[in-house]
Design a binder for these strands. Structure first.
Lengths: 208, 208
DNA sequence: CCGTAAGCGATACAGTCGTATCGGAAAAAG
DNA sequence: CTTTTTCCGATACGACTGTATCGCTTACGG
């Protein structure tokens, strides 16, 4: 057999290039040729990794979803114990891709969301990512509620609602920052105020 | 002078076609030829109305922004007096384009937002629309707060923060519905819960 | 009544798109 | 060594893109 190649890593490399291009050139700027050039491979190589462009984008959106999720988990692992409430705060900060160094991921995310409204196949992995994030937030909210004085703890439906509220709020804030309607500071201010209110609602006693 | 034509109305007609196409074909589906066909005019006619495609999209995004804003105002005018709180509720419902008949506008909005992250010229009118919506919400929140028992009324910074929270939340919910992460009912549930909390915070006494 | 200019739609153009194809380089297997 | 199989990058192709150009029609101003 001839030259063997690590397809998995090449696909990842190409997905990275897709994200970079989607970020700096917008949705229309992502052509197979540009992706190939950005990934420093030939057009043929890209075609061998992905039969079609749609397939490539699909892989890229899964890639980004995993990256965000993984970063949130890493942030949680970094500050291990502490209070469940601050953990939730950190997670929310990470999900809302507000800081400049995550702006790229935020733009890519938005590009894919816009595209997914039309292409059902693109929507599926996006839904999976949202579901995973929601699940994580539900877990964190639950833990935060339990750590409080626990008036009996909020009943589950409220918890899910709070998680969804938080997820939608962070997503909205992110896009508002991206279009320039809000500054990063303003968005963080809104997010922190919401979290403070959430803690009060849960009956959490927080130090900071 | 020869034949005179009503450019204003034609531009509006073309903008309408842009929106329809952006909705059903996505961002990539909006080509000059398709727009011309959808608007039932010749390609040349489109070119005479808008020197360039960018210019056409710019007009279309302004058009959509005005339409949404106008609809919110119409809704407020329809239920004139009542309480300031229910007015705020109606406005929020209208801003979050949740109902099926507004789904189209929501998709178009998202397409433009995604594009605006890259093209600065597209971002400008979008920012104006957001600013107008935020202004409206600030006004409604203020009125709702004043109509309450008025412990001294919430101080302005809080009002702005609440308005921004509401705007970001509605935007986030809208996109989550569009990608299918939430159903319309779930999103409405989240929105209503948030509004209830907001009223409590403002000290508003609401009948319903 | 005629010239002039605004509007018309068709066509041309150069470029880019996604995809298909193909001859040759390269490396494991015999 | 030769054979065989996998991968390579270049090129080809047709469709479509945004924009420019160009006669022709049309209707008002003089």
């Amino acid at each position: 057999m001839p030259k063997q190649v690590d397809y998995a890593s090449r696909r990842r490399r190409i997905a990275e290039a897709v994200c970079l291009l989607a970020d700096e050139q917008g949705p229309e700027g992502v052509s197979m040729r540009d992706v190939a050039a950005r990934a420093e491979v030939s057009l043929g190589a890209v075609q061998r990794c992905f039969r079609t462009k749609e397939e490539m984008l699909l892989f890229a959106v899964e890639h980004i979803g995993e990256r965000v999720m993984e970063r949130v988990r890493a942030r949680l692992g970094a500050s291990p114990a502490q209070s469940a409430a601050t953990a939730l705060g950190h997670a929310a900060e990470e999900v809302a891709l507000l800081r400049e160094d995550h702006r790229t991921e935020a733009r890519i995310w938005l590009v894919f969301v816009a595209r997914a409204c039309v292409s059902a196949s693109l929507a599926a992995p996006l839904r999976r990512s949202y579901a995973a994030l929601e699940g994580l937030l539900v877990r964190l909210v639950t833990e935060a509620a339990e750590s409080g004085p626990g008036v009996g703890s909020a009943m589950p439906p409220h918890v899910v609602r709070e998680a969804r509220t938080l997820l939608a709020l962070t997503d909205g804030l992110t896009s508002h920052v991206l279009v320039g309607h809000l500054t990063t500071e303003q968005a963080e201010d809104v997010l922190h105020a919401h979290l403070t209110g959430l803690w009060e609602r849960l009956g959490v006693t927080t130090a900071s």
